[in-house]
Simulated scan of single mutants.
Amino acid sequence: MTTTCKEEARRWVHRYAIGGAAFAALPLPTSAGLAALQTHMFGMIGEIYGESVGNMASAAAGGSFSVMGQGLRFLAQRAVGFVPVIGPVIKAGIAAAAIESIGHGIIAHFERKYPGKMFTRG
């Protein structure tokens, strides 16, 4: 069975989103952990497309994800404050949606560089 890089990357984005949602549901500070998870996802998608994402690019992406995470955390905390019983579910949903959208943005970047590239397991 042949798979495109886009299909393989989407599978991984869904996995990262599920992991991020589970992590966000924990009663812990999550923005640094989610930023690390998103940075790792960036590297994983790069590897799927056959690119090694360098340390500088990873650091830049991690900083961007961290800043964005702070804003999303603020929104999630507000949501939790309004509905304390289902707040953690809302927080997990926000994290999953953010990771999905970031992942699809990263995939779109690589698809512009390598449209329709076939995935080879390596």
Rank of each mutant, 00 (worst) to 15 (best):
K6E: 09
E7D: 09
A9S: 15
R10M: 14
R11W: 02
W12E: 07
V13I: 14
H14Y: 03
R15F: 11
A17C: 12
A21K: 03
A25S: 13
P27I: 04
P27K: 12
P29N: 05
P29A: 06
T30R: 06
A32E: 06
L34G: 02
A36D: 08
A36C: 10
L37T: 11
L37G: 13
I45K: 08
I45M: 10
G46D: 01
G46N: 02
G46I: 00
E47L: 05
I48R: 02
E51Y: 08
E51D: 13
N55F: 11
A57L: 11
S58R: 15
G62T: 04
G62F: 05
F65S: 01
M68Y: 05
R78T: 14
A79W: 10
V80A: 10
F82P: 01
P84F: 06
V85I: 15
I86Q: 09
I86T: 13
G87C: 04
P88N: 12
V89L: 15
K91S: 01
K91C: 00
I94W: 04
I94K: 03
A96Q: 07
A97Q: 04
A98C: 10
A98H: 09
S101V: 04
I102Y: 06
H104T: 00
H104P: 00
G105Y: 14
G105L: 08
A108Q: 11
F110W: 08
K113A: 09
K113N: 03
Y114I: 07
P115Q: 03
P115Y: 04
G116Y: 13
